[in-house]
Design a protein around this nucleic acid. Sequence first.
DNA 1: CTGGACAGACTAACCGGTCGGTATGTATCA
DNA 2: TGATACATACCGACCGGTTAGTCTGTCCAG
Lengths: 197, 197
Amino acid sequence: MARTTDGDGTPVPQRLLAAATRLFAERGYDRTSVQEIVEAAGVTKGALYHYFGSKDDLLHEVYARVLRVQQERLDAFANADEPIEKRLRGAAADVVVTTIENLDDAMIFFRSMHHLSPEKNKQVRAERRRYHERFRALIEEGQESGVFSKATPADLVVDYHFGSVHHLSTWYRPDGPMGPQEVADHLADLLLRALRP
Amino acid sequence: MARTTDGDGTPVPQRLLAAATRLFAERGYDRTSVQEIVEAAGVTKGALYHYFGSKDDLLHEVYARVLRVQQERLDAFANADEPIEKRLRGAAADVVVTTIENLDDAMIFFRSMHHLSPEKNKQVRAERRRYHERFRALIEEGQESGVFSKATPADLVVDYHFGSVHHLSTWYRPDGPMGPQEVADHLADLLLRALRP
DNA sequence: CTGGACAGACTAACCGGTCGGTATGTATCA
DNA sequence: TGATACATACCGACCGGTTAGTCTGTCCAG
């Protein structure tokens, strides 16, 4: 039997990543010791430093995973064969749902970026910008075609919406009165209503 | 001459608070050592622990200051003798301006809450709720009188707006193309437009 | 001479990361 | 088939460095 799956069926690197994600979201990056991560994953430090170069690397992996997923989902909605209104609404609501379904990731994303090393921070920022720009392009397209109001610069509208997404990890509770889809519909509504000409 | 004002005219406790605010915003709470704070303030650890019980206390003071100022300003706008639309717009825009003018505070506020001790965290949350509820009351008032749409629960609208305020510290740059008032007007516009019946 | 306002040396606890070592799996060849 | 050789996966003691907080002492105002 391969050592990689001792204990349960999940490979060690993924177990470490999962444990780190949970702990980083729970206590923050600096308050989580490498020792705690490896204990939660049921291995020792040797294993962690066998698969990851540093604690920082672990955090970076979390970011990479989130960014990849979000960008893929946005592209799918943005490139669909639908009227612009529907595409924007779909993308805006979807990012809310996936954020709620991965609140830990969101928490880490917005709270721990400054813990990344400068190069990795730069890399993450660059990918974030790609995401931001794809979203902005959607809004601009609607503005050009007269479906959305031009009163507010598209850039600002993007930040307005992502502010609310960002904020979710602060106030949303899974045991609260609203489900993910419900919140998503409301937030997408607010965005679309704000954009009415 | 009192030792409290050695060096410049500012009393030591305020110098410590100012230094801590800047450093916490710059590097984060955990990455800022007590030694760095006292050096930036031109004193030693003896002085810090003479005035503050702990590093945590220092952070708490930053929160208390921000909360007090924001609550006062909100109350002023909310209780003014104006139509509800104007009062909400005024409050919504004002919080944006003051947030931009104290970006360090905002950065710390949303990034470092989880570093507070449980009791202090609870205390801060309670005050935050008061603020949130005053703002929500404004929106509900407008909804009741038919000036604002009832399509979205008032609670969610509040979180929507404060999401964008929260987000400011992430993207706003003082040397960017927009001034504080300009951004504030746009964001208040978006809120009011989203609330149109 | 008393007490507040500090200075600064000190401590005990961690923490990230390293490193030598071991166990297991796999490829090669006689 | 069985032995040899090497690679991969991991263990856990250990190290250098840092940190929040303490404690004793000094100095000056009133």
